[in-house]
Amino acid sequence: METLTDLAPGKTAVVTELRFGDADAVRLMEFGFVPGVSVSCQRRVPMGDLSVYQLDGFQITLRRETASRIVVRMRAEAEGSDHV
């Protein structure tokens, strides 16, 4: 099982599962992390363990701890970029 933390900068993956309690999962989905959405890793933020992700054309940072509970399926570059 791979999670967002396994996503290297420049790579893309599809969200498959959120391993959170209900309320937290809703919040994550409201912020865009809906199963089926493509997420790419933009960069790691220095000093600390934040990473910047891009989804649906906007950027959001997550702590490693949060990212490690978002299960993803890696995508090959060739798969195209349309979502859901």
Binding site: F20, D24, F58, T61, L62, R63, E65, T66
Partner: peptide
């Protein structure tokens, strides 16, 4: 215990 952390970076 810690909670999920999300911080949108606006354009």
């Amino acid at each position: 215990k810690p909670m999920p952390f999300m911080l949108p970076l606006p354009a």
